[in-house]
Amino acid sequence: MAKQKPLVVVTRRLPDAIETRMMELFDCRLNMDDHAFTREELIAAVAEADVLVPTVTDRLDKGVLAQAGPQLRLIANFGNGVDHIDLNTAQQRGITVTNTPDVLTEDTADMTMAMILSVPRRVSEGERLIRSGKWEGWSPTHMLGHRIWGKRLGIIGMGRIGQAVARRARGFGMAIHYHNRQRLHPEIEQELEATYWESLDQMLARTDVITVHCPHTPATYHLLSARRLKLLREHAYVVNTARGEVIDESALVRMLQQGELAGAALDVFEHEPSVNPKLLEMDNVVLLPHMGSATIEGRVDMGEKVLVNIKTFVDGHKPPDRVLPNLV
């Protein structure tokens, strides 16, 4: 008798090739209209699924996981970040959690570099001007920005993505500075020609562009607090493609309004999908809808990781991308 396939509930639309393979391998329930699950739908899903495949839009907190059925043994997250999942509760209930590391590194670094370039060079402002029909032609003093060659880039979080950004930024002539929980191996530091700062405060006061690449955890919530943002110089720019909660967004908005910062480029927001309406009014801010890793290749690679994690787990082995609370 053939072994019964596990019920896999997928909360959002995934690439066609991934969904097709899931349908072949598992008893799979897809979200064909790609709506974001409500809390009630999440509770219903964990109550009956053997495997749940959530994304960053699904908040699996203690209240939701407390209503999981005994058959739920794996949460195979479609994405690298797991701050939307209560890992401690999952572990207490015997639920394994996996993610999709490594495959988003280059895509996110590409987008970060694009954002680092876009604000000082006023790319979005120029594009909006063209579309408005108000451009009257070239002028020697029109739309002047700032060069990034020779500027200091401060990287907060020097993991895979932070290092990938550093390699790109070096190609644009930027000096690399970084703050990390642990200092890099000397060989990597030498390769990147990177300057390590044990004190985040000291690094902030000396850099021209700050880019955030650390995960959102209780320890990093508002890591860039109002106090720390005040340490930045008036000509500095803030870039964030990590998690919105790492920056005190209200403090950032106030400083931008008062001219205490030169600009910002944000792909993530503290209360997304809600965006502070004051940000929408600012010309010196580039705003993107959480698309730092949004490439076709990246999404397919993420899906392949999810498939491997589920299949490995179902076959009775430890999945390769297991996430533990003490390792986040």
Rank of each mutant, 00 (worst) to 15 (best):
M1I: 09
L7Y: 07
V8K: 01
P15T: 02
D16L: 04
M23H: 07
D33F: 02
H35P: 00
V46H: 01
D50A: 05
L52F: 07
R59I: 13
R59E: 11
G63P: 03
Q67V: 00
R73E: 07
G81C: 01
V82G: 09
I95K: 02
T100F: 01
D107W: 01
V119Q: 15
P120A: 13
R131H: 15
R131A: 15
P140N: 14
L144I: 15
I148A: 09
W149R: 14
I155P: 02
I155G: 08
G159H: 04
A164M: 04
V165L: 03
A166R: 04
R170W: 01
F172I: 05
H179F: 04
N180L: 06
E191S: 04
L192D: 04
W197G: 01
E198C: 09
S199N: 06
S199I: 03
Q202V: 03
A205I: 08
V209Q: 08
V212F: 10
C214F: 09
H216F: 13
T220N: 12
S225E: 10
R228V: 12
A236G: 10
A242M: 10
L256V: 06
Q257Y: 09
D267I: 13
E281M: 15
V285Q: 12
V286M: 14
L288T: 15
P289N: 12
G292D: 11
R299E: 13
K311T: 15
F313L: 00
D315G: 06
P320T: 11
